[in-house]
Design a protein around this nucleic acid. Sequence first.
DNA 1: CGTCTTGATCACAGGATGTTTACACGCAAT
DNA 2: ATTGCGTGTAAACATCCTGTGATCAAGACG
Lengths: 273, 273
Amino acid sequence: MSRERTDAQPGNQTSSQRAQPRLRVAVVDRDPGFMQVLANRLGALGCEHRALSSPATVETLVAMRLNALVVDLAVIGPESWDYLERVCGRLPGLAVIVCTGPSSVAQRVRGLRLGADAWMTKPCHPEELICVIEAAVRRHRRHELPQVDVAATIGEITVRPDLYQAYVAEQSLELTAREFEILQLLAQSDRVLRREEIYERVWGYAMAHGDRSVDVFVRKLRQKLRAISPAWNYIHTHFGVGYRFAPEPEVLELDEAGSADVPAPEFPAALTR
Amino acid sequence: MSRERTDAQPGNQTSSQRAQPRLRVAVVDRDPGFMQVLANRLGALGCEHRALSSPATVETLVAMRLNALVVDLAVIGPESWDYLERVCGRLPGLAVIVCTGPSSVAQRVRGLRLGADAWMTKPCHPEELICVIEAAVRRHRRHELPQVDVAATIGEITVRPDLYQAYVAEQSLELTAREFEILQLLAQSDRVLRREEIYERVWGYAMAHGDRSVDVFVRKLRQKLRAISPAWNYIHTHFGVGYRFAPEPEVLELDEAGSADVPAPEFPAALTR
DNA sequence: CGTCTTGATCACAGGATGTTTACACGCAAT
DNA sequence: ATTGCGTGTAAACATCCTGTGATCAAGACG
């Protein structure tokens, strides 16, 4: 699965707000006039937009990092409902606006129930459509980041979102972007987080069934944390539930000679091969 | 009977989504028929609803702790726009749906720009309106989770859903995920729960006939509770019915002494079946 | 008092869940 | 191109939770 971290620096996006483009919108439609008008308006508003004449796969949509998707169900055809369900299910953070020709109440109800945010009937005024898109996106963004860029210290751990840097008792931790985001999320949440929740908030979309990425990153985090304070376990596992960050570290009983754990003071990733 | 829990799936939200009315909605309108139909549907869905024939002040709305507000601008009159702006500005967490008679594109655009989440034109199908309300609220709720589950203390028992942890008189109980969920359910319900009900709410699907899992988990719970306070029995068995959590623990007769007489025949046998 | 039904308790096999390791892929910098 | 590094997948391994069946105790009912 393509998961790029295109803009790897400061104002990272995944879990926090996007940098410049006001909005990133894709439109799936086949009416050139409609597309053109919409594109003009979106462009004028400073939104990044992309026109698609056929439905993109879920993976593609994920890769595009959209805020909103406008779709004419007529373009998709008979499997429209499936498509809608898949997209809404997999990208709960995406605003989906169905903009289609005349429809029955039952159809509109069905679409909304499957997760669409709004249903517009063509022909519609572009300005109104834009407002609807913005209204839908507004909701997503409101709770997107309660308080970012505020350095926080939780127990021995200090997190500096502005620098993408974490510290354990003054000592700096060398974390990758994703590791940092997970640590930040865990440290700032004073409760048990389910894997699905961690995934969704860090990756930005729903976790696929059976995905173990979170576990692996937790392991990497634990490993690096252990390299600095070998006797403490900051991340508790709640079997059958998820993980929780423990501000007051639980003391581990390390048998004789911290053997098995700390690979080396250096960072093991470099030595693996 | 083979019971697969294959679909233990996307995290057991069982515990997180119970309690509370599904939605709290207020409707500002003057059409009695419309209000009645809407009230019926909302009631059937388990939503708390309230009808208002004149606009409530912002303060009142705050006090009502609403999830959504449906408003007919005609009821408010000329200062509709001001009102909309005030409400949306002051309660960013409230979903506002304008449901009004015929309007111009300019009006709809203005309403949405001021912060409304959706604009429905009367006459509209109640079912569709409900779907629109739900779609709007869905967005707010997505990241609302952190505060949803609050700690509760029932008698000597304290339940902390955020930590997946329970306490008996300050002392922590080591429970597995399932055990915790059952204890939470019992402790938060002030009544007798049938086995089928417990099973369905914890496991997420119907109990197979003859399944004894609930009994076994109750046993484990009792065992762990007894380990901390040996003289008390928190979980009462109602023969032929189910279980009930007793906030004021029943004192057990240890050894012989005042044997046979168990106090509290509070519930008269509750029909044998 | 005897019998039937329902619940309690126990031990354990099976399997779901979590951990660790190794490696393939793709982007970015050289 | 090549290399390095971060990311995510697959598979082996370790844990320990879960649900079942058997057995025993207790209520219901005649």
